[in-house]
Design a protein around this nucleic acid. Structure first.
Lengths: 182, 182
DNA sequence: TGTACATCAGTGAACGCGCGTTCACTGATGTAC
DNA sequence: TGTACATCAGTGAACGCGCGTTCACTGATGTAC
C-alpha cells in the first residue's frame, strides 16, 4: 500500500541507518537485503523502490559514514586527532563495531568489492584523512603523521577485534600499545 | 579412482597451497570449495576426503600461514622487524595480497568467523607477535613497540589496498607514511 | 614373485538452502475537478 | 471543500543461481596368500 512522502523518506533513512550498523557488524556479505529490510520494519520487496541494488546501498552507506566521521573529527578542532585516538582505542569501540569506525569495520572488505564501492570508499577516506591532517597538530609533516596515526589506529582495532573473543587480554594489549607508543 | 598415498598427500598440500592464496585474495566467503578444488586440479567431491569442512580448511590455512610468517620474521634475527617492515610496505606486497601477510589479507574477516577460526587465528597471531617482539630491537618496551608497529603495518596495508585501484597515489602515500614516521 | 581381492581417493550428480532481484498485485495517498 | 481516480510505496510469491555438503559409484592401489 502506498505511503506518504514523509513516511517514504523515513523508510529510506531507516534502511540507511540499519544497513550502516549491520554492514559494520557482519560485513557486506554477512547481511542480506531481507535482513536489512526486516530490521528497518519493511519487507524485502520494498528495497528496490529505494535503492538500485545492494551494492548501491553499500556505496551510499560508506559515503555517509565517512562524511560523518570526517565532520566529527573536524569538530574536535586543532589537536583533536589525539582525542579521537583515545576514544578509538577504547573498550566500547572494541566491543561495538556496528557503531564504530567504518574504516576498521569494512576496510578489509573494500578491496574485494566492485569499482563503485571502492570509489565511494576512497572519496570518503580522502575527506577523513584531510580532516585528520587538519587536526593532527601544527608540525610541518602533519599529513604524514596523520596518515601513519590513522593506519595505526585502524590496524590495532582490526587485529584487536579479531582476537578479542579468544584472548581479550591480547586485544586490550594491542589497543593499549597505541597510546603507549609515540 | 584410488590414488597412491604419495599422490594423496600431494593433493592435500595442493589444496592448502591454493586455498591459502585464494582466501587471501578474495576472502573466506569470496572463494568456493569447488573453486579451490578446481585450482588444485581436483573435483569438489574429493574435498571432504581431506578436510572436515571449509571452516576446518580455513583454520589450518591460518595456522600454517601465521606459523610460516613467524618463522620468516625470526629468521631475520635481532632488529629484523625493521627489514620486515620495509618489505611489508613495498609495492609488490600492496599488489599481491594472495602471497602476502595473512593478517592484512584476512584480519578484517576473522572477527566474523566461527569460534574455531578465531581461535586458530589468535594462536597464530600470538606466535607472530612474539617473533615481532624478539626482533623489535633491544629496548625494554620491545613488546609494546612491536605491537604498535605491527598494528601500523597491518592498518596501512589494509587501507592502501582498499583505495589502491581508485587512487594509487594515496595508496602509496599511506604506505610511505609508515617508513617516514617514527 | 604372481594373483585375487579388499580398500579407499576421486568423480560427478544431487540435496537443501539462502541469496539478490523481479513483478503482479494491493490499497493508501494526493491530485484534478 | 468534497469526490473520483490516477499514482505509486509496500507486499509477498517466485525466479535463477551458486553455495556447502552428501553419496553411490568407479577403478587404481596395495595387501594377503
Amino acid at each position: 500500500m502506498k505511503v506518504s512522502k514523509e513516511r517514504r523518506s523515513e523508510h529510506r533513512a531507516a534502511i540507511l541507518r540499519v544497513a550502516s550498523r549491520l554492514f559494520r557488524e557482519r560485513g557486506p556479505e554477512g547481511v542480506s537485503v531481507a535482513e536489512i529490510m526486516q530490521a528497518a520494519g519493511l519487507t524485502h520487496g520494498a528495497f528496490y523502490g529505494h535503492f538500485e541494488s545492494k551494492e548501491a546501498l553499500l556505496c551510499e552507506v560508506l559515503a555517509v559514514m565517512l562524511a560523518e566521521a570526517s565532520d566529527q573529527l573536524r569538530d574536535l578542532g586543532p589537536g583533536g586527532l589525539d582525542d579521537y585516538a583515545q576514544g578509538y582505542v577504547s573498550r566500547s569501540h572494541l566491543d561495538s563495531p556496528g557503531e564504530g569506525c567504518a574504516v576498521a569495520a569494512l576496510g578489509g572488505d573494500v578491496a574485494r568489492q566492485s569499482a563503485a564501492v571502492r570509489s565511494a570508499f576512497t572519496s570518503g577516506l580522502k575527506m577523513f584523512l584531510d580532516a585528520a591532517t587538519e587536526t593532527a597538530g601544527g608540525c610541518e609533516d602533519a599529513r604524514s603523521l596523520a596518515l601513519s596515526r590513522v593506519s595505526q589506529l585502524v590496524g590495532a582495532l582490526i587485529v584487536a577485534r579479531a582476537v578479542r573473543s579468544s584472548d581479550e587480554t591480547l586485544a586490550l594489549e594491542l589497543l593499549g600499545s597505541i597510546t603507549t607508543a609515540e
